[in-house]
Simulated scan of single mutants.
Amino acid sequence: MTTSNPITTSFGPHSTAMDAIKGIDLVGRRVIVTGGSSGIGVETARALASAGGEVTLAVRNTDAGRKAADDITATTGSDHILVAPLDLADQGSVADFVANWDGPLHILVNNAGIMAAPLSRTPQGWEMQFATNHLGHFALATGLRPALAAADGARIVSVSSAAHLRSPVVFDDIQYERREYEPWQAYGQSKTANVLFAVEATRRWADDGILTNSLMPGAIRTNLQRYVSEEELNRLRSGNAAAWKSVEQGAATSVLAAASPLLDGVGGRYFEDLQEAAPATPGGRTGVAEYALDPEAAERLWEVSTALLKS
Rank of each mutant, 00 (worst) to 15 (best):
A258I: 11
D63F: 04
S260E: 08
G250F: 13
L108Q: 06
P118W: 15
N133H: 02
T3K: 06
N133I: 00
T192Q: 04
R60N: 09
G153D: 01
R300G: 01
T132Y: 12
G35I: 08
N61W: 09
L236E: 09
A64Q: 13
G36K: 04
S238E: 15
L262V: 12
S50V: 01
L196Y: 06
I40A: 12
P146F: 09
D273T: 01
D71K: 07
G35M: 10
I174T: 08
W244R: 07
V195S: 05
A89V: 02
T75Q: 15
W126F: 15
A149I: 06
P123N: 02
I40M: 15
A292Q: 13
A289K: 07
S246G: 07
L86E: 07
D25N: 10
S4I: 07
A258T: 08
S229T: 15
N111C: 06
R226M: 09
R166P: 00
V33E: 11
I114G: 00
R66K: 14
E230K: 12
G92M: 04
L293W: 05
L301G: 02
T306C: 01
R121C: 05
I40R: 12
W184S: 10
A99L: 13
G143D: 08
V247E: 12
P6T: 10
W101N: 06
P279G: 01
E182M: 09
A49V: 04
T8R: 15
H134E: 08
G52T: 08
A20C: 13
A68Q: 02
R269T: 01
S160R: 06
T8P: 00
S238M: 13
D102N: 14
E230P: 00
E248R: 13
A277C: 03
T306R: 08
A139W: 06
T142A: 04
A201L: 13
S93H: 10
I72H: 07
Q189D: 04
L215G: 01
R178V: 08
H14R: 15
G283D: 12
S311R: 15
S158N: 15
Q275L: 02
N5L: 10
W302I: 05
P146V: 06
Y187E: 08
Q249V: 02
N100H: 13
G92K: 02
G287R: 13
M18H: 14
L308F: 15
I107N: 03
T132K: 09
N61G: 04
A112G: 00
L256Q: 08
A74S: 14
T281L: 14
D79K: 13
A277L: 01
D96N: 11
T73L: 02
D70E: 14
R30D: 11
L211I: 07
I40W: 13
Q124E: 14
A58K: 06
A298N: 03
S50W: 03
A206E: 13
S38N: 14
P183G: 05
V59C: 10
D63Q: 06
P6G: 06
A147C: 01
W302K: 03
S160D: 07
R226T: 04
